[in-house]
Computed example of a mutant assay.
Amino acid sequence: MSETHATVAPDTPVFPPGRYGRRREPGRRRPLLLALVVAVVLALLGLGAAKLYTQYGDPTYQGEMISYTGITDSRVVVDFRVTVPPGGSATCLLRARSHDGAEVGHVEATVSAEPGQRHVRSRQEVPTSARPFIGEVLRCRPAG
């Protein structure tokens, strides 16, 4: 028959004394402290990411379509505007598509802004392999 004490609950196991070491008391949980530490760490990581993006991130190179004219069987002339960092330059990909949506021509155009200016307006001819229906600016990126 096993030994039971009056102070021990009936469903609690009784271990032989000294055999398994000292049992720890359950610690107090501190969910508020844990949430505060997580919030501080996330805020610091966010600030670090914002600083690095500001320092090393790509500035915006935005190409805007103004018009397309001069459509013939072998070309289209695209007028476009590019927003670059002040005095910067960009390489833009222009393309021409036929009436059924197929690409019939593309060209890369490099444009440069005057010192202190952020916008460049340019006109570029896009040679095509068939009659184009539309000319467009696909994307602009830093020149180089």
Score class of each variant (00 low, 15 high):
Leu44Asp: 09
Ile66Arg: 14
Gln62Gly: 15
Pro17Thr: 09
Pro86Asp: 03
Arg81Glu: 10
Ser98Arg: 07
Ser98Leu: 05
Gln124Gly: 08
Pro127Cys: 02
Val76His: 05
Glu64Ala: 11
Ala50Trp: 12
Arg28Tyr: 06
Leu47Pro: 02
Ser67Gly: 00
Gln124Ser: 07
Tyr20Ala: 09
Asp73Glu: 11
Ala143Trp: 00
Tyr20Glu: 08
Arg75Gly: 13
Cys92Val: 02
Asp79Phe: 03
Thr110Asp: 11
His99Phe: 12
His106Ala: 14
Ser2Trp: 14
Ser98Tyr: 00
Leu34Met: 05
Pro127Ser: 01
Val111Gly: 01
Ser112Pro: 05
Pro13Trp: 02
Thr69Cys: 01
Leu34Ser: 09
Gly70Met: 06
Phe80Asp: 11
Val137Cys: 04
Thr4Glu: 10
Glu136Asn: 07
Leu52Met: 12
Gly27Ser: 06
Thr4Tyr: 07
Tyr53Ala: 13
Ile134Ser: 04
Arg118Gln: 13
Pro17Gly: 08
Met1Trp: 12
Ser122Tyr: 08
Thr72Ser: 12
Ala109Cys: 07
Asp73Asn: 11
Arg30Gly: 09
Val104Arg: 08
Val37Asn: 10
Ala102Leu: 12
Ala109Gln: 10
Pro86Lys: 01
Asp79Pro: 05
Ala102Gln: 12
Ala49Cys: 02
Ala35Trp: 00
Gly144Val: 01
His106Arg: 14
Thr7Met: 13
Arg95Trp: 06
Gln117Met: 12
Pro17Cys: 03
Thr69Tyr: 05
Gly116Asp: 12
Glu103Pro: 11
Ser98Cys: 03
Gly144Gln: 00
His106Val: 02
Gly27Val: 04
Arg29Asn: 02
Val137Ser: 00
Pro31Glu: 05
Leu33Arg: 15
Thr83Pro: 07
Gly63Pro: 12
